[in-house]
Measured scan of single mutants.
Amino acid sequence: KRYRAVYDYSAADEDEVSFQDGDTIVNVQQIDDGWMYGTVERTGDTGMLPANYVEAI
């Protein structure tokens, strides 16, 4: 699945990823209600991200 960031996010922990509004997130997997795991296409960084900061595309 592919998602697009709708807000900027700065990683708060080493297992999270930072991204900017408009970034595409690929290979996304749902972890639980609030978190997903995926790769930021622009940077190649992979990690956890907050589900409410992205939307499906």
Rank of each mutant, 00 (worst) to 15 (best):
D33N: 11
Q30R: 13
T46P: 03
N27A: 10
A5D: 03
V26G: 06
W35T: 06
V17F: 05
V17T: 04
K1W: 10
M36Q: 04
R4F: 08
Y7M: 15
G34D: 15
D13S: 15
I25A: 00
D32N: 15
S18N: 06
N52P: 09
G22W: 04
G22E: 03
V40H: 03
L49R: 01
P50T: 02
E14M: 11
T39D: 02
D32I: 12
I25D: 00
V26F: 10
E41A: 08
T24Q: 08
M36S: 04
A5R: 00
E55F: 09
T39L: 06
E41T: 07
D8G: 11
F19Q: 00
A56I: 14
S18D: 06
Y7F: 12
D21S: 15
D23M: 01
V28W: 05
D21V: 15
D8T: 12
V54Y: 01
S10L: 13
D8E: 10
S18W: 02
N52M: 12
G44W: 06
A51Q: 07
R42Y: 04
A56P: 14
N52K: 13
N52T: 11
M48K: 15
Y53M: 12
E41P: 02
A5M: 00
K1D: 13
D21N: 15
E41V: 10
Y9R: 05
T24E: 10
Y37W: 13
A56N: 09
K1P: 12
I57M: 10
V6K: 14
I25Q: 00
R42N: 05
L49Q: 01
G34I: 15
E14N: 11
D13V: 10
W35I: 06
G38S: 00
R4C: 09
I31P: 03
A12Y: 09
T46V: 10
V40F: 00
E55W: 07
M48P: 01
V40Q: 03
E14I: 12
A51Y: 08
V28Y: 04
T46A: 08
G34T: 14
G38Q: 03
G22P: 02
W35H: 05
M48Q: 06
E16N: 05
D8N: 11
N52C: 14
Y53N: 05
E41Q: 10
A5N: 01
Y9N: 02
Y53G: 08
E41S: 07
D15G: 14
D32R: 15
D15Y: 15
A11R: 07
D13F: 12
M48W: 15
T24F: 14
Q30A: 11
G44H: 05
G44E: 04
N27L: 12
L49W: 04
D21T: 15
G47P: 01
D23N: 03
K1E: 12
M48I: 12
S18C: 05
D45C: 14
G44I: 00
S10T: 14
M48V: 08
P50C: 07
V6I: 15
I25F: 11
I57Y: 10
A51S: 13
S10A: 12
G47H: 03
K1S: 11
D45P: 03
Y3Q: 02
S18T: 08
A56S: 10
T39F: 04
Y9A: 00
D21P: 11
S10H: 13
Y37I: 11
V40N: 08
D13C: 14
P50E: 02
Q30W: 15
G44D: 05
N27T: 05
E41C: 12
M36T: 03
Q20L: 14
I31N: 06
P50M: 08
P50V: 04
K1F: 12
M48D: 02
V28D: 01
T46Q: 09
R4Q: 10
V28K: 02
V26P: 00
Q29H: 14
T46C: 09
E14R: 10
I31R: 10
Q20M: 13
D33F: 09
E16T: 07
A51N: 06
D33Y: 09
G47W: 02
D13Q: 13
R4I: 11
F19C: 03
A12Q: 15
V17G: 00
F19I: 05
V54D: 00
V26H: 07
I31V: 10
A12N: 12
R4K: 11
M48A: 06
Y53P: 00
V26N: 07
Y3R: 03
Y3M: 06
F19L: 06
T43G: 02
V40K: 00
D15M: 13
A51V: 10
G34N: 15
A56E: 15
K1V: 14
G22V: 02
D45F: 09
A5Q: 03
A5V: 05
R4A: 07
G34M: 15
Y9E: 00
V17Q: 00
V26A: 07
Y37L: 12
Y3V: 06
Q20F: 13
V26Q: 06
E55A: 10
V6Y: 07
Y9C: 05
V40R: 00
T46R: 12
V54N: 01
A5F: 03
V6M: 13
R42G: 04
V40M: 03
S18I: 01
T39I: 05
D23P: 00
D45Q: 14
G34C: 15
L49V: 11
D45V: 10
A11Q: 06
T46Y: 08
R42W: 04
D45W: 07
P50L: 06
S18A: 05
G44L: 05
Q20K: 14
A12S: 11
D15L: 13
Y3L: 04
T24S: 09
Y9I: 02
M48Y: 14
D8F: 08
A12C: 12
M36I: 11
F19M: 06
V6D: 04
D8A: 14
L49C: 04
T46K: 09
V17H: 01
Q20C: 13
G44R: 06
Y3W: 09
D23Q: 01
P50K: 08
V54T: 04
P50W: 07
E16L: 05
A12F: 09
D23C: 03
D32V: 12
V17D: 00
V40I: 08
N52V: 11
E55D: 07
D33G: 11
Y9W: 06
Y53T: 07
Q29F: 14
D33Q: 11
